[in-house]
């Protein structure tokens, strides 16, 4: 049985922990709001880009001479997995869920006899995958100390990926990130970026009518080639922003749980403490009484 002093110390330390997790939860909530704002602000660009790409792709019927970014290299021997995670832990299963998904895919591809190359973005993913896939990791990026992600960060990654693609170092590229669904639910998602999976034209009638009258300067093929390159950076940027929001959401709910747990623990410890205090008082009384009776 722990002594009263031990119990008092434990209660004090759990209370301190609760204060910290509570503070972290509130910080995460504030950061989440900002991350969501940024993600919303980035949406118009991506939407317009998608719309133009969809109408362009609809126009190009023959795949002859189309950009390899769209139709691929014709084989799928080497896969590049770009795994995006956070820089920090203490956000529940956020980092390990993404890494788990990427690892499962990497192992599956390797079983099928494909070559797998991994590029990690964010320190936690690299730490997580290093154990069993160290040989496959060809590059790691991290954004330590970056306070607000900017498009330049995404461009840096995109340029590296495009350089590698042009050098023929891989055939298929997929990004792994966590899609933000709500504060309590983030879904690790793979998204193939090379060859590009173009968004289907949503409303066939309207798009067909619109795209029929567009003039393209220079011609469709050239524009499409350029847009596809830009699209890589846009997709990566989107992944990064989704990830940033998801990370904060995950941290918020993880810290909420931790705060609640600490509260439960304090309650339990307090009951034990009170009980023990009572027992001690009773014991002392018995000692006094029996001492007096003996006289």
């Amino acid at each position: 049985m722990a002594s009263l002093k031990d119990l008092r110390n434990r209660i004090a330390s759990v209370k301190a922990t609760r204060k910290i997790t509570k503070a972290m939860q509130m910080v995460a909530a504030a950061k989440l709001r900002r991350a969501q704002e940024v993600a919303t602000a980035a949406r118009p660009y991506a939407e317009r880009m998608d719309a133009v790409l969809a109408s362009l792709a609809g126009k190009i019927t023959s795949r002859e001479g189309a950009s390899p970014l769209l139709v691929g290299t014709g084989k799928s021997d080497t896969h590049l997995l770009i795994v995006m995670t956070a820089e920090r832990g203490l956000c529940g299963g956020f980092n390990s869920n993404i890494a788990k998904l990427a690892r499962a895919d990497a192992l599956r591809l390797m079983r099928d006899g494909k070559t797998v190359k991994i590029m990690t973005v964010g320190r936690k993913g690299a730490d997580n995958l290093r154990r069993d896939l160290n040989k496959q990791i060809i590059d790691r990026r991290d954004f330590r100390g970056v306070r607000q992600l900017s498009f330049t960060d995404a461009e840096g990654i995109a340029n590296r990926v495009l350089d590698m693609f042009e050098a023929g170092e891989f055939d298929v590229a997929t990004i792994y990130f966590s899609e933000f669904q709500s504060v309590i639910s983030q879904k690790p998602t793979p998204l193939q970026i090379i060859p590009a999976k173009l968004p289907e034209a949503k409303d066939d009638g309207a798009v067909a009518k619109n795209s029929a009258v567009y003039e393209y300067e220079p011609d469709e093929q050239v524009i499409l080639g350029q847009l596809l390159k830009r699209n890589i950076a846009t997709q990566i940027f989107r992944g990064l922003l989704e990830n940033a929001a998801s990370e904060q959401g995950a941290r918020m709910s993880a810290m909420d749980n931790a705060t609640r747990n600490a509260g439960d623990m304090i309650d339990k410890l307090t009951i034990t403490y009170n009980r023990q205090r009572q027992a001690q008082i009773t014991k002392e009384l018995i000692e006094i009484i029996s001492g007096a009776e003996a006289l």
């Binding site: 362009l56 619109n210 009258v213 003039e215 393209y216 300067e217 220079p218 524009i223 350029q226």
Partner: peptide
């Protein structure tokens, strides 16, 4: 393909 000016009612164009 050269600088161009757009006024209201311009024909639909997509250009780099």
């Amino acid at each position: 393909e050269g600088q161009f000016t757009v006024l209201v009612g311009h024909a639909p164009v997509v250009s780099t």
